[in-house]
Design a protein around this nucleic acid. Sequence first.
DNA 1: CAGTCTACTGAGCGATCGCTTAGGCTTCGC
DNA 2: GCGAAGCCTAAGCGATCGCTCAGTAGACTG
Lengths: 208, 208
Amino acid sequence: MAPGSGSADGTGGMWAGIAPDASRRLLLAAVDSFADLGYHGTSTRHIAAGAGMSAGALYVHYRTKADLLFQIALTVHESVLAELETAVEGIEGPSARVRALMYGFARWHARHHRAARVIQNELGALEAAHARRIAAIRRRVRALVREEVRAGAAAGAFDVADIEGTARAMSSLAIDVCRWYRPEGPRSPEEIGALTAHLSLRMLGARS
Amino acid sequence: MAPGSGSADGTGGMWAGIAPDASRRLLLAAVDSFADLGYHGTSTRHIAAGAGMSAGALYVHYRTKADLLFQIALTVHESVLAELETAVEGIEGPSARVRALMYGFARWHARHHRAARVIQNELGALEAAHARRIAAIRRRVRALVREEVRAGAAAGAFDVADIEGTARAMSSLAIDVCRWYRPEGPRSPEEIGALTAHLSLRMLGARS
DNA sequence: CAGTCTACTGAGCGATCGCTTAGGCTTCGC
DNA sequence: GCGAAGCCTAAGCGATCGCTCAGTAGACTG
């Protein structure tokens, strides 16, 4: 694992782009605290302490607490998008593509369930301008899933009456993993990914 | 609709059991505010103002802000449980029972998406003793879904290898409705319920 | 009509919030 | 060797937090 990274990270370091080191430590401490206590339940002093600094040091690296949340939301959403785009790269055939997509989607949300919880629960805490930028990325994620469903249905590989609704359900299934997943539970992120992919193909009425 | 109820309510008044009137008004104002701003983001003054009272009046009806959250969590979870138990009452045949169960489950989370968001996002804000009582109800809800899947699989009506995982996915699909549902969107709670039921049966490999 | 009770207001308590500021230590170019 | 710049601490600002409490208005009891 890359040095300086505090937790398991399967995407080659979601936080690797955050420099310098002190900025990254603050950001990781914020993710930890936001995941447990929520954005409003977390004080800037608590974040700074988690990064081993005094209260004021946070403002050397981030303008406001809201800016810190935005940095997290941006980094995390871009990581999801990259994960999905990589997942289907070079894979052919509607069923194989959906399987790869949903496997990566769900596995990501298990691996990064704490970061994912932050961005699912605290979207409403973003300021209006920040929220718009994040919403744009989320639309691209949903479009990616919908496009796979649409293409597969058009090719006759899937039997799906409600493309939009079924694609929404697939995304929902993968995203909600972060709400109930516990690392100490019986399933690995890979197993959850495989199950989610399998169930997605069933929802799509894919030929076995 | 019952008088005194502030919003559409398909379960015959989830909040009808909350008396007197001032207590219920405070509780409804709290749900509204918690759903938008989160538990920690909401001040007791804001709740009281939402119920048309001054700050101190809240403490005539509730011991603490945490007690208020617990009352909400308890009422809402019992409403879900009642909804599911009623949904399958008198219905025979595994597929028909699953269809009724998941229809009710998802429809409830669309109809009451604001209250549902509170209890999904703010579970961590509950005090330990309160959290245990709520967790017990949630286990009963999950068991209800799992039992329908198990019974149907045992009867040969479903083709499902991973009973626990598939049941979890079904619950997840219904619960997550509250995260993305918008009343101004194109789908009614009933349509979402029907789609969720349909997709659940597909995940189960039910005979058409 | 006096006495009691309940529901509520408005002021305010101590604690904590996000954030700023003064100042010190370290590292650097020149 | 020295001023500039960057990163950090400690103290503290004004605002707001959850919550308490003395006092009041109105309904009910005997």
